Simulated scan of single mutants.
Amino acid sequence: MKELLLIFLLISCYTLPAQRIINLPHEEAKNSTWENPEKQYMSDIWQTEVVTNVSTPTLAYFQADPEVNTGVSVIVAPGGGLYALSIESEGNQVAAWLTQKGINVFVLKYRLVPTGEDGVADISTLAEKNPAKIGEEVAKVLPYSIADGLEAINYVRTNASELGVDTEKIGFMGFSAGGAVTMGVAYNYSKHNRPDFLVPVYAWTDAMPVQTPKKDAPPMIVICASDDPLGLAQGSVDIYNSWLRSELNAALHMYSKGGHGFGMREQGLPSDSWIERFYEWSITEGITVHAE
């Protein structure tokens, strides 16, 4: 038993590289007050590790092994309805996979809706009794969440030399509500905080409606499942079509099954390998070189 435990610990250490926490500069929110501190816990409702009550945006930097480091970096925004962050399956586990391919990862904790002790319970209750309230609260905070995303790009690009990343290969990937942040970044960047590629994964287009992209919008790969119970498949198709109509570089992977929030969870479905399709796309686009 002790031998098995030692092997597990060694594998865990290899799989997830050491992280560095970076506090991001940010404008104080004028219409939201966080009375409860940031909290990380295992949600029995969602059956995954979550973070709630984020009032100060941070980046957790997972640096690729120097032997395979490509200089490419991805800022990853986990989902959770802006009431929580699915920090493991849509954050840390994504980082563990990508860093082995030589891609540096910055997991973004963007600002969330202030909640009680259990933000997942709060949004779950509202979804049953007062779903309109969710939209009202999200609308207050989302502009700050997007600002956090833009600041994350600005920070990584400004400090690229110290961080060991390429200033022209900084991407943004987001899941669900993090996908809304991703598209908010896509529509609001300036010269210095423009992402070099975009990866919206089952993006929440109700929170961030599809818009006409900028003329210099970066290449993008859209990922979703047709059976998404929140109806996000159509929004993902609309995002893709908006790039296509503007004659911009875009790819779409729409799985027939996968549901919502699959992230890095294994379901025994083709959607389990979405991250491999992203990696292949990044090689095809000349963003990433193949890691030996």
Results as ranks from 00 to 15, higher is better:
261 G>M: 14
231 G>V: 15
205 T>R: 04
139 A>L: 11
27 E>A: 12
272 D>I: 03
223 I>V: 15
108 L>F: 10
101 K>N: 06
77 A>W: 11
118 D>C: 06
287 I>V: 11
18 A>E: 09
97 W>K: 15
5 L>G: 00
291 A>D: 12
36 N>E: 13
7 I>S: 00
93 Q>C: 02
183 M>D: 10
39 K>V: 02
275 I>L: 15
19 Q>D: 02
15 T>N: 04
170 I>R: 00
136 E>I: 14
55 S>D: 10
61 Y>P: 02
3 E>N: 00
251 A>P: 02
155 Y>Q: 03
277 R>I: 09
226 S>W: 00
147 A>S: 11
147 A>F: 03
11 I>R: 06
252 L>M: 09
235 G>P: 01
219 P>N: 15
206 D>C: 01
178 G>P: 03
119 G>C: 11
37 P>H: 09
226 S>T: 09
70 T>S: 15
27 E>K: 12
171 G>E: 11
285 E>N: 12
13 C>K: 01
266 E>D: 12
4 L>P: 00
89 S>Y: 05
223 I>E: 01
117 E>N: 14
11 I>W: 03
196 D>W: 04
196 D>K: 06
252 L>H: 03
260 H>C: 09
69 N>Y: 08
138 V>E: 05
112 L>C: 11
24 L>C: 05
165 V>K: 01
126 L>V: 08
191 K>A: 12
68 V>P: 07
134 I>Y: 00
223 I>P: 01
159 N>R: 02
188 N>K: 13
196 D>R: 06
176 S>E: 03
272 D>P: 04
271 S>I: 14
16 L>T: 13
162 E>G: 07
198 L>R: 06
10 L>T: 00
280 E>G: 06
180 A>Y: 12
141 V>Y: 08
77 A>Y: 12
67 E>H: 08
64 A>M: 06
119 G>D: 08
31 N>S: 05
181 V>K: 04
258 G>L: 03
99 T>F: 05
99 T>P: 07
26 H>I: 13
179 G>K: 11
134 I>G: 03
85 L>D: 01
122 D>S: 03
182 T>I: 09
283 I>V: 15
206 D>P: 00
76 V>Y: 06
91 G>I: 10
147 A>Y: 02
216 D>H: 10
273 S>Q: 13
274 W>M: 08
241 N>S: 08
101 K>Y: 04
215 K>Y: 10
281 W>H: 06
115 T>H: 03
255 Y>F: 15
140 K>N: 11
145 S>N: 07
183 M>Y: 09
135 G>M: 10
35 E>M: 13
45 I>D: 07
85 L>M: 10
180 A>H: 14
144 Y>E: 09
167 T>A: 10
52 T>I: 15
9 L>C: 01
60 A>W: 08
242 S>W: 04
237 V>L: 06
237 V>E: 03
225 A>T: 14
12 S>E: 06
40 Q>D: 09
203 A>N: 05
50 V>Y: 02
283 I>C: 11
159 N>H: 14
70 T>M: 09
208 M>T: 12
168 E>T: 15
230 L>W: 11
47 Q>R: 15
150 L>N: 02
263 G>K: 01
137 E>Y: 07
266 E>R: 12
194 R>G: 10
125 T>I: 04
120 V>M: 09
276 E>F: 09
270 P>E: 01
118 D>S: 12
134 I>Q: 04
169 K>W: 01
87 I>H: 09
131 P>D: 10
133 K>E: 14
30 K>R: 14
241 N>A: 04
57 P>H: 08
36 N>G: 07
58 T>S: 13
30 K>T: 15
